[in-house]
Design a protein around this nucleic acid. Structure first.
Length: 199
DNA sequence: TCTAGGATCGGCT
DNA sequence: GCCGATCCTAGAT
């Protein structure tokens, strides 16, 4: 599972491309004295001011979304339904408030830690098969808002270990839970790996 | 200051 | 498949 941590340039690309490229990458998290590594299996792209499903649609700029307006490669974390955290990674560049939502991943290292955080024994696949579950598994909260994934010694970063995800195992579909965004909910910006890529 | 509603999850039917 | 939990955020007043 060794490999170079992804640098800023990886994230400074069109959001749709970054989303696709993140599939199969390793999410590495140091927190609470433990290290957890997970392989990304599901993501969604959010295309900024032109995307009705995106928090920055129409140029909205608030304290919450401020991170999205900043440089690529930072974590945009928010609370949804008063209960769950969602982890996004800012893409493109300053003034282009786009991001990729990490929706799901498979545990690679630290499964015991993840089970402890999730509070019940479940199959590995069910430990982080949703954005809220993923953040719980990784112990991500709003205190991680703005975290720079490309910084040396960052508590959260992404590694490319050379694992390749073939297009044939990727399911592309509309986005989840954004019906309020009208037809934009159907834009094919969700990517999900539908085979076992534990690697 | 007030209020409506949300990029979800898990339990129950 | 349906529904309640739960509280922050953003926009309105």
């Amino acid at each position: 599972m060794t490999g170079p941590a992804l640098g800023r340039e990886f994230y400074q690309c069109p959001t749709d491309d970054v989303a696709r490229a993140l599939l199969g990458k390793l999410l590495v998290r140091h927190a609470e004295g433990a290290t957890v590594v997970m392989r990304i299996t599901e993501v969604e792209a959010y295309l900024g001011t032109e995307d009705p499903a995106c928090h920055t649609f129409g140029g909205r700029r608030t304290p919450r979304t401020e991170t999205m307006w900043g440089p690529a490669g930072h974590a945009y974390v928010y609370l949804i339904y008063g209960l769950h955290h969602c982890l996004n990674i800012v893409t493109v560049g300053v003034g282009e408030p786009e991001a990729v939502l990490i929706r799901g991943a498979i545990p690679i290292v630290g499964i015991d830690t993840i089970r402890e955080r999730r509070g019940f024994p479940a199959s590995d696949r069910l430990l982080a098969d949703g954005p809220g579950k993923l953040c719980q598994a990784l112990a991500i909260t709003r205190s991680d808002q703005g975290c720079d994934l490309t910084a040396i010694d960052s508590a959260l970063f992404i590694v490319d270990d050379g694992f390749m995800v073939d297009d044939s195992v990727i399911e592309k579909s509309g986005r989840i839970g954004v019906a309020y965004a009208g037809s934009a909910a159907d834009w094919p910006l969700r990517y999900r790996v539908h085979s076992d890529i534990r690697g």
